[in-house]
């Protein structure tokens, strides 16, 4: 499907993550996948364990940064990687279920640890084609 995808975009020191989808929630899910792809191939991460995430922010953009930062926190403290995301947005409130597995260095060959999602190139907007885009630079 053309209007549901993720991609990376360049930043001189770090990496840009971008999700595109038919709804803001879908774009948030794709952005999360793009972030996993900074660390490893998401196809290598089995969705065997799940957890719930809730966050809230004053606007869509800060909410995107919050969502990615919560995932970064969970990745760090649980030593996990995530590959499946279900996001529900209610105004500037987010509820998500995410699935993934524990880091296995031999299997995942994690390239780099993500320090944080930044406000640089932070954007949640509608594209000309009518889909939603969610993006920012992550500091690695």
């Amino acid at each position: 499907m053309k209007d549901l995808y993720w991609e990376h975009f360049p930043h001189q020191a770090d990496m840009g993550v971008r999700g595109v989808g038919p709804t803001p929630a879908a774009a948030f899910e794709q952005a999360a996948l793009a972030m996993t792809a900074v660390v490893t191939d998401p196809g290598l991460v089995a969705p065997s364990e799940s957890l719930e995430i809730d966050c809230e922010a004053p606007d869509d953009e800060l909410l995107l940064a919050d969502w990615l930062n919560r995932l970064i926190l969970e990745m760090a403290v649980r030593h996990m990687l995530f590959s499946r995301f279900e996001v529900v947005l209610d105004g500037h409130r987010l509820h998500a279920t995410v699935w993934g597995e524990h880091v296995d260095v031999a299997k995942h060959q994690p390239a780099v640890e993500i320090k944080g999602a930044t406000y640089t190139e932070l954007k949640v907007s509608r594209t000309e084609a009518g889909s939603w885009l969610a993006q920012c630079i992550v500091d690695v």
Partner: peptide, 17 residues
């Protein structure tokens, strides 16, 4: 390490708001 990253993340948000 993670402690510094998390402090940076949290205060960035608070200061932006």
């Amino acid at each position: 390490r993670g402690l510094g990253h998390q402090i940076g993340t949290e205060f960035l948000k608070q200061m932006a708001i």
